[in-house]
Every structure is written in structure tokens, then in C-alpha cells.
Amino acid sequence: MFEARLNNATTLKKILDAIKDLLNEGTFDCSDSGIQLQAMDNSHVSLVSLTLRSDGFDKFRCDRNLSMGMNLGSMAKILKCANNDDTVTIKAQDNADTVTFMFESQNQEKVSDYEMKLMNLDQEHLGIPETDYSCVVRMPAMEFARICRDLAQFSESVVICCTKEGVKFSASGDVGSANVKLAQTFNVDKEEEAIVIEMQEPVVLTFACRYLNAFTKATPLSNQVQLSMSADVPLVVEYRIAELGHIRYYLAPKIED
């Protein structure tokens, strides 16, 4: 028996919004420690790694490890049927070929359940090596989303250049060029407005705007985003989900021919 409950559906809706543009389907691996999903997009350029800890749920029970392959488009249709303040419970029997989403209104007067067929997904799991990144940047998630959106107008690619002084995002194309420089902040009132740079070595890396923009769909989940970079290895873009876990996106850099 598997059962996981969240007291409002908003978080789950936001999580799904954050992954459904990159992935058509995914396997949710459930164990007593929580729920994990790891999947690459079709082109094998980016990877989504979602971790939801069991202690972050309002109720969590997982008697046996369970892998549930879900079509994310279908899951999105079902979650649209939930009000934001509904309690959502995900339920499945052991070895079941369906999963049930139950939504309960706050006053308990409306209870709906939606059963969805599970899929057998043949997904490759990737071993992600532990890496000491040369640069780790923490910045407001809204600011990162804004920069990715703005620069995508100028080029398919954005160059991220990180030094001790700050981080620079650049794009150039037919229209011209664009540069956005952010300096490290000191003495900001609110932690969520801070820009913090931890640098061992400066890095310059080039990434496809399209994927960065897809990652920023996670912005509603977190005030801050963390970018971890080293030369010639995939970028990690991490959004923490308060009291529940995190979503990490990995993106392969563009490389010289």
C-alpha cells in the first residue's frame, strides 16, 4: 500500500508545471524515504531530478518500494481538477497498474477521485558523479527567470561567465548583443533577495536558452535558485521546495566542435 497526502494541491500542481514541458512521462520511485523521479528529456540534453522527502508530506505510507510510470500530460489533466486548497492524496496498491488521486475540499463536502493508468517505462537511470563545482551562484529565482526570458530574444544560447566579482549572462545574435551583469550583494534585508557567489575558479559556459527557460517553470516553487558550474560539465539548476525537497535540472553545456 502506498499513500501520500499533501494538505494543499498547489505544491503538486507547481511541481508538475515545473517538469511537464521537459518530460512527457516519468517514473515516480516511491520508498519509505519519499518519492524520487529522475528522467532525461527526449534529446538527452537535460535531466530532471525530483526529490520529495516522506517527512514533508502530511501523511506518508509506503509499505513496499513502488515504481509508478506516469504520463505527465494525463497527470496534469487530473491535477487541473483539484482546487489549490484541496487536500490531495496519491494512493496505489502494491503491484497495481493504476494510481488514484483523491481531492478533498477544505470543508470536506466535496471528495473526488481520479484513477489513472500506470505505464511501464523503460527508463535509464544515470549515475551523477559527486562534483565540487568551481562556481555556485545563489540568486532570486524571479531574477534568473527574467534574465533567461530576456536573453532568449537575442540568441539560442546564453553564455554564463562567473567570477568573484559577479556573474554575467550574455547573448548575441542578428539583432545585436545583450549582457546582464549581477554583482554579489552585501547587507540585503531579505535573504531571498541576496545574490551570493562561491567561487573556486572562474568559469565560462554556454547553454541553450530553450532549456534554461524550461527550468524556470519551477520559479513558483522557490524564492531562490542555485546554479552550480564547472568547466566542461553539466550545469545544475536547483530549486528547493520548502520543507519537502528539491528539484534539480542538469543541462549539458555546448561544446566547441
Binding site: H125, L126, A252
Partner: peptide
Amino acid sequence: TQTQGRLDNFFKVL
């Protein structure tokens, strides 16, 4: 010129 890398080149399939 640059080409888009793939994650398979960086991460091992388990």
C-alpha cells in the same frame, strides 16, 4: 562553432 553536448557523455548509465 559549438554543438550541444549530451548528458550521456557526462553521466554513466546505471
